[in-house]
Nucleic acid binder design. Structure first.
Lengths: 196, 196, 196, 196
DNA sequence: CATGAATGAGCGTTCATTCAT
DNA sequence: CATGAATGAACGCTCATTCAT
């Protein structure tokens, strides 16, 4: 285990360095040498853990996003009903983004770009997050909290887009206010919009 | 007029070629030579009308986005009340994006990126669009259609984000459905969410 | 004559503009458009009078240098003996350079460069000036003022080089002293060196 | 030592290749790829040792010229009196230029140009060489060999200019004679000119 | 004669990636 | 496993020159 652990540590180390570097300068402007310096390794070392620069970015998404989704799913399972879950999801989303602003910057500002260039690739990507949102809403419909006549795929996008833009605006404004303060107003808006 | 017209034609020609090229390959992947070939001019000619590649992208935003905002504002001024205006805005947004999918791709996929790198500059950017949304909602509050206890800046971002993500998803799905079909479900969701 | 005169006027106009532009920015840094602007003509017009940019520089040398040589030769012919002529030449050289500092800058700072790239071309170039110097010294030898055992080609180069460097230093120092004040000390040094 | 040596070797290798390339085609005409080919390295490698093309030229001047000045100073310190030193300096100058004709070409033909464009920077440049000349002449004055009523700054320039032009002429003539043969005639001329 | 919009060849420089150590 | 010196493909941009008007 020692070996494997150590290896994963270095991989993790590089990914976290990349998050910082990409957040600070943007994916295209950030140099592999920036990531290497930040990680305290040689540039060549990065290629022992990642196929290339794109792979590094994609890995961040896949592993970090999947991690969030699993974590969120676990935390939400405890909540009573769909409305509470939806409100909780907004809180979690904003809380985590505020707690990891570099990661947030990469998600918000580089994600689109990569959604584009990865559109060729097979991308589990955000699918899991959209699914989670969809499940909560469907649960609300079954519980009678939300309308039955929703165009689900429209609602999922609207909800995700609202979360996304809220975080982006916060980042571009220089993170000069509490992101979590946006959670309840946003949750209220959607919950009212979804109710019977 | 002949002269001025001709000059503007060429500038317009290049901008439209750039929109196509940027939409197809993304801003960073698109070469100036791609834009030139698309426009049917020499690469050097582009530099007679634009300072550099960034200026070309920024000009597209400034001139096209501002154009849309003015057009939308003009069209909405005729509508009776805030709810109708908001619904109309969603329709206009989706209609125009569907009518100009290449421009849409540039907006959706490159805009964030540039919001990032332009965040240093003092750019009016999307400010005008957020203002338009805000005005409609405030009008709705005065007319008694919308709640008074809205957190306006949260609502504006949510609304814009929902529009934005809906278009992005449509683009990434290969534009294989009618974007305008998303308009009413989306408008319903927000109008209900905003109502008293 | 009107026609020819006018044509020559424009050619002259362009050459003088080029001298200013080349002096200010250096030959390589100066743009044809700089010369055109300075001359108040369109860039294309320059090509009606000169084959290309190199030809413009070469023409300045040929026509202006030849002009100086003829003028100097004419002025010196009146002087009594070789020593006086040599002293007078130093004075004339510095006086003219100080009177035409832009032309001086082109001569001093671009001449070498072009002596290099023109070394392919047939170049009457500075030959005439070296000849003039040589003639004065030989006259001095015949008059018994200067030593017979001079290595003439070495002396000519030394004398020209001394003039040249003196002007260059003055230019690089920002022309912040009277160049003509260098004339007598320099003439003294050489005349003593050449005497029996 | 191995490491440091190797690194300096490569830097030296590139500088020497640049000297050849610049001598053959002139600084502006020579391409970085020419230098790279001459040095047997990739073009990119040059940028590991020099900031850019200008820095490469400037480095040649700084390191090689300073090297010559130190070497000359060391060699001259052994000589008895100012006259002998001055004669020796002429010999050394011509001997070294003849031994390193490519370096000579760069000095003679590109130096002016760079004196021009470097005149903005605070560069010690040739100052050290002018100082060396000045010191010898002042020593001669103190020893009673040279006149007291010399205009020192004029003499320094004349002497340097004479050396400089002699080398330039030799280069432009295709190096088809022994440059060192010019040393004694030139030294004689100046020593006589400087004597009491 | 004169114009100036258009051309397009040409090059310095960057940086992701490799591989000998 | 790790290094970092070396690579070289790739591209934005400039500007001398042309030519239709």
């Amino acid at each position: 285990m020692g070996r494997a652990k150590k290896t994963n540590d270095k991989r993790e180390l590089i990914m976290n360095a990349a998050i910082k570097a990409f957040a600070r300068k943007g994916y295209h402007q950030a140099r592999i040498s920036d990531v290497a310096r930040e990680a305290g390794v040689a540039a060549g070392t990065i290629y022992l853990y990642f196929k290339n620069k794109d792979d590094l970015l994609i890995s961040i998404f896949e592993e970090k996003v999947q991690g969030f989704i699993q974590e969120f799913r676990r935390r939400l399972s405890r909540e009573e009903n769909a409305e509470i879950k939806l409100r909780k999801l907004v809180h979690l989303h904003f809380f985590e983004m505020q707690a990891h602003p570099d990661l947030a910057a990469v998600f918000q500002l580089e994600l689109r770009q990569s959604r584009h260039f990865m559109s060729a690739y097979p991308k589990p990507d955000l699918k899991g997050y959209f699914d989670l949102i969809g499940e909560i809403i469907e649960e609300g419909q079954q519980q009678g909290q939300f309308r039955k006549d929703l165009y689900l795929s429209a609602v999922k996008k609207a909800f995700f887009g609202a979360l996304d833009e809220t975080v982006t605006s916060w980042l571009l404004a220089g993170k000069d206010y509490e992101l979590t303060h946006m959670a309840d107003p946003l949750a209220d808006l959607f919950i009212r919009g979804l109710r019977e």
